[in-house]
C-alpha cells in the first residue's frame, strides 16, 4: 500500500533527508468577504496521526478542502508542501496520486457495489478512457482487506451501515495509494466500536508510513489516537504540537468555553479529558 509513498519520498532529494510530512503556511480562505481561514500554519509529521481540532465553524473542513486542492486558497502567499513537493503547484491528477480526501458525508443513491466504489480511487492512476485493469482490481481488493471489508466487495453501498460505509470511503482513499490522507470527521455518526475501529486503521496506516491528518470533534478520541494536534478557533491556529501540550485546560477552556480537567489513563498514560460548563 505504501510503495508509492516510500517511492515518492526516496525520490525527493532535499537538504533534510527523510520524509517531512505536510507543512502548510499562511493558508487563508474567504467567502463573500468573510474570512473563514486567516493565515493558518499547520503541520502533520510524516508517518503519524495528526488531529485537526476546534469547535464548530472554526474552519477544520475548509482547511482540509484547501489542503486537498478542492478549493484554491484566497491568498497568493499560501504554501502547502508535502515532503518537499509543492502540493498547490501540482497538477490535479498528480495531486490525487499523492493525497486522498475522505469527506464527512459523501453518499450516493446509485446502485454501486463496494468494489466499484473503491475502484473509483484508481481514476487518477489511469487514462480517462481506460477501464479497470487487473492491477487496479488488485489494489482495490488490498484496500478492502486493509479496512476489513473484503467480504462486502459485492454488496451495494446503499445497503451498508454508517460504519461500513465509512470504511468503504477509507478504502476508496487507500486505492488512490496516497502518501498523505486527509479525513473530515472520520468518526462522525459511528458507534463507539466503529469509532475505535476507524482510528485503529488510521494508526496502522501511519505505522506504514502514510501521513494522516484527521479533523476530529471528540477531544478524548484525539487524546487517545493522535500524536500531534492542531487546534483551530475562528479560522486561526490557537495551538499546535504534542497532544499532551495542547490538550490542557489553559488552551482548551477559552476556545471551547468549558472547564476542562485532565486525568491520566492508568494503563496507556494518555490524557483523558472531562468537561463541565463554567459557573
Amino acid at each position: 500500500m505504501t510503495t508509492t509513498a516510500t517511492g515518492a519520498r526516496t525520490a525527493t532529494t532535499g537538504t533534510t533527508p527523510g520524509p517531512r510530512g505536510l507543512d502548510a503556511e499562511r493558508v487563508s480562505w474567504s467567502v463573500g468577504g468573510r474570512l473563514i481561514l486567516d493565515g493558518v500554519d499547520a503541520t502533520a509529521p510524516a508517518g503519524a496521526v495528526s488531529g485537526l481540532l476546534g469547535p464548530n465553524g472554526s474552519g477544520k473542513s475548509t482547511l482540509l478542502r484547501v489542503l486537498a486542492g478542492v478549493q484554491p486558497p484566497s491568498d497568493a502567499g499560501a504554501r502547502v508542501a508535502f515532503d518537499d513537493a509543492d502540493l498547490l503547484g501540482l497538477g490535479r491528477r498528480k495531486r490525487a496520486r499523492v493525497l486522498a480526501l475522505v469527506e464527512q458525508e459523501a453518499s450516493t443513491d446509485l446502485p454501486l457495489t463496494v468494489l466499484d466504489a473503491v475502484l473509483l480511487g484508481r481514476i487518477p492512476h489511469r487514462s480517462l478512457l481506460a477501464g479497470d485493469s487487473d492491477a487496479d482490481r488488485a489494489v482495490a481488493h488490498r484496500a478492502l482487506a486493509t479496512v476489513g471489508m473484503t467480504a462486502f466487495a459485492e454488496r451495494e453501498v446503499t445497503t451498508l451501515s454508517g460504519g461500513e460505509r465509512q470504511r468503504v470511503h477509507m478504502a476508496r482513499a487507500l486505492a488512490q495509494e496516497p502518501a498523505l490522507i486527509l479525513l473530515d470527521e472520520p468518526t462522525n455518526h459511528l458507534d463507539v466500536a466503529a469509532q475505535l475501529d476507524a482510528l485503529r486503521t488510521l494508526r496502522a496506516l501511519a505505522e506504514d508510513g502514510v501521513t494522516v491528518l484527521a479533523a476530529l470533534h471528540d477531544l478524548n478520541l484525539a487524546a487517545q489516537t493522535c500524536d500531534h494536534v492542531v487546534l483551530l478557533s475562528e479560522g486561526r491556529v490557537v495551538a499546535a504540537g504534542d497532544v499532551r501540550d495542547v490538550l490542557v485546560p489553559d488552551v482548551l477552556d477559552p476556545v471551547y468555553g468549558v472547564r476542562t480537567e485532565v486525568l491520566t489513563h492508568p494503563r496507556t498514560g494518555r490524557p483523558v479529558l472531562s468537561f463541565e460548563l463554567p459557573g
Binding site: 486537498a68 478542492v70 491528477r93 490525487a96 486522498a100 481514476i123
Partner: peptide, 9 residues
C-alpha cells in the same frame, strides 16, 4: 468534492 479530490477539473 469527491470528483475534485480524484483529480477531475
Amino acid at each position: 468534492t469527491a470528483a475534485a479530490a480524484l483529480g477531475v477539473p
